[in-house]
Amino acid sequence: MRLAVIVFPGSNCDLDLYEALHTVCGADVEYVSHKATSLAGFDGVMIPGGFSYGDYLRAGAIARFAPVMKEVIRLAKAGAPVFGTCNGFQILTEAGLLPGALKKNDSQRFVCKTVALEVVNNQTRFTHQYTAHERINLPIAHADGSFYADQATLDQLEANGQVVFRYAEENPNGSLNNIAGITNAAGNVLGMMPHPERAVEAILGNTDGLRLFKSLLTPAAAD
């Protein structure tokens, strides 16, 4: 599986994502510029955290118009795995690949800490190496992470098993239904505010994020 880590102006977790995949997991991964017009030869897309285009207008709003996004959308529609963390999640909602939106944290503060999460759905291509309802801890670092969607969309997300991660103890940002990460209806696009790529080695103090990448790289028997 060959993966692209998209680099936008203002991305700042691209290196973390690349290292988690390449150095820690031994994956075939390459940086791809936001200006690229083709993702031919790539089997999946990783959209990193950061502040693409300075979060101007709304977080992720301008990145949606980068040339590479046409290709990201093409791959997503074709069923390829697409993963976005933090700003990547915001970009995926702005691009219409995931429902809902991320708004300012209720606290009005940038929140940077480790939070407890529940793996709500371990039957996805990103989470099958976790156990059902497993509690994990992952770092968050964001100011605009409050997940919002109208009630009908929330009901649909819950009914379809699209809520993959939920804040398990405190809700750090005001997200509705304590949502920390969701997939699209097809299950091949995952967006989440927490940073699994920052929790993949013992030296980082936490390895709870590692199995997300291992899940992606080792398709379950059912796939």
């Binding site: 709304r58 709003a61 118009f65 909602t93 702005e94 939106a101 708004k103």
Partner: peptide, 8 residues
């Protein structure tokens, strides 16, 4: 298409 996110 740009200035407004109609979700919110």
């Amino acid at each position: 298409q740009l200035l407004v996110n109609f979700n919110m």
